[in-house]
Amino acid sequence: MDNDTTPMIDEQPATNGDSRKTAIEITEMHKWFGEFHVLKNINLLVERGERIVICGPSGSGKSTLIRCINRLEEHQRGEIIVDGITLTNNLKNISEIRSEVGMVFQHFNLFPHLTVLENCTLAPIWVRKLPKEEAEASAMKYLERVRIPEQALKYPGQLSGGQQQRVAIARSLCMNPKIMLFDEPTSALDPEMIKEVLDVMIQLAQSGMTMLVVTHEMGFAKTVANRVIFMDEGEIIEQNEPSEFFDNPQNDRTKLFLSQILSH
């Protein structure tokens, strides 16, 4: 794999004519799964171009938090404002937000009955109403950015896990999102494939994309994050810039967590 570091995105999402500085604003947000209080009083302000890594033990609510941002999960109390749009039950608002927010899943969730190229052009054609040729040209551009253009006509089932995840990233980028959410993007990958996905994500970060990444890849956090958030039992326990977060954790739970994941 060649390792050129050309910026991934020409049109920087942060400066595409939108002067709004805040990307996401979450105030006093709560969420329950039935009786279970999964997210407690979440307050989070994400600025444009910010790269945030969210970590924490399993079951701490980190995935649920980012899934609330594009309404894959519904919150019950508090307010979430994404790109100036308040998330309510209004279907029009929800679909507007979803087309501005890209998401990459742990299990890739590519559409197995469509080719790689069709996976990438589907939403631009059917949601953005782009003409097919234009959508394909833009999809090929992003497939090149994730270094996988030669696989465009294959089906997802014929690719390795790392390749599939890169296609999933390209698929999200094809919608020209302003914000990208990553839900444990490397957790389902074989060790030798993690790097190829992280490289793509690092390039994306360098291009100025607003990113919220749930991950345990602390190397990634140290390299690109502006801020690391530690969650436990549905609460944001601690947040800080990476160097402070890793070298000088304040909370005992953070210290315990870091000692557990960094000790081996």
Binding site: R71, L72, H107, N109, F111, L122, V127, R171, S172
Partner: peptide, 11 residues
Amino acid sequence: GQFEAADALGL
């Protein structure tokens, strides 16, 4: 995940 991916793309 298929339903979620479709939702997340704004379909």
